[in-house]
């Protein structure tokens, strides 16, 4: 175990014409660390996520990732082939809407197996056994393996999407509102599952959410964004219990109490 970070982000900015997507965002992410990015809609948190996952190229700034061989590589200088390879082996991306991250017209088993086949696995029996294993880890019954995700509920689809992303043993997972649009009991189970998986696998994750409770449960560290800028960052408990920036104080005090 080294003390070196997994991901180093420095002065990342993205402008959409004259509008600011995100401005001067810098942070380090350690292996196994979960960072929550919170803020209201339009604060630039999804822009940050998309830039880091190379789905979007930033206007300026750098991000370097420590590859499995220990070498830092700058994300925006890699070739597209390398980036896409990274994306389907060492990284995962969990979309808010599972339909964006799943192939809705192929079976659950094939959804989980796709990444394995993409990296060259050519043994049907082994691929299927791995798929069965992963479905059980995300609490989907084995007999649903040949069903299409269209036949799944929202919570099941989200769990399937997580399995599909984790099957190649990634080290870094990006999550965009992973519990958005789910009702609270389903949300609770999903969070429980995610927390277990992240701890068991030692995953590093960047979770974008507007739900502070999700951030509290999942993350160790937190970054609060407003208008494309980071207004406050620190340990999650510290930020939520002792918010310093006026905007964070407003955000924390806006949580509805039941």
């Amino acid at each position: 175990m080294t003390d070196e970070p997994l991901l180093r982000v420095s002065a990342l900015s993205k402008f959409y014409g004259s509008r600011v997507g995100c401005d001067n965002v810098s942070f380090d992410l350690s292996p196994g660390e979960v960072l929550a990015v919170v803020g209201e809609s339009g604060s630039g948190k999804t822009t940050v996520l998309n830039c880091l996952s190379t789905r979007l190229l930033p206007s300026s700034g750098t991000a370097s990732y420590r590859m499995r061989d220990g070498q830092f590589r700058e994300l925006y200088r890699m070739s597209e082939a390398e980036r896409r390879f990274l994306m389907r082996t060492d990284w995962g991306f969990v979309h808010q809407n599972p339909a964006d991250g799943l192939r809705m017209t192929v079976s659950a088993g094939a959804n989980v197996g796709e990444r394995l086949m993409a990296v060259g696995d050519r043994h049907y029996g082994k691929i299927r056994a791995t798929a069965v294993d992963w479905l059980s880890r995300v609490e989907i019954d084995e007999d649903r393996i040949d069903d299409e995700p269209r036949a799944f509920s929202g919570g099941m689809r989200q769990r399937l999407q997580i399995a599909r992303n984790l099957v190649t043993g990634p080290r870094l997972v990006f999550m965009d509102e992973p519990t958005g649009g789910l009702d609270v009991s389903v949300q609770a189970r999903l969070l429980d599952l995610l927390r277990g998986l992240v701890t068991d696998l030692g995953l590093a994750a960047i979770v974008v959410t507007h739900d502070l409770a999700v951030a509290r449960l999942l993350s160790q560290r937190m970054m609060v964004m407003k208008d494309g800028r980071v207004v406050e960052s620190g340990l999650t408990d510290r930020v939520l219990d002792d918010p310093r920036a006026p905007y964070t104080q407003l955000l924390v005090s806006s949580i509805l109490q039941v």
């Binding site: 192939r103 079976s107 094939a110 796709e114 990296v119 050519r122 299927r128 040949d146």
Partner: peptide, 22 residues
């Protein structure tokens, strides 16, 4: 076209996987 260019053919095996599963 991008998949051909980058030789990303995992998806083709997804189709064959579906065949065997069904």
């Amino acid at each position: 076209r991008k998949m051909h260019a980058l030789e990303e053919y995992g998806l083709m095996h997804v189709k064959l996987y579906e065949d065997i599963a069904r």
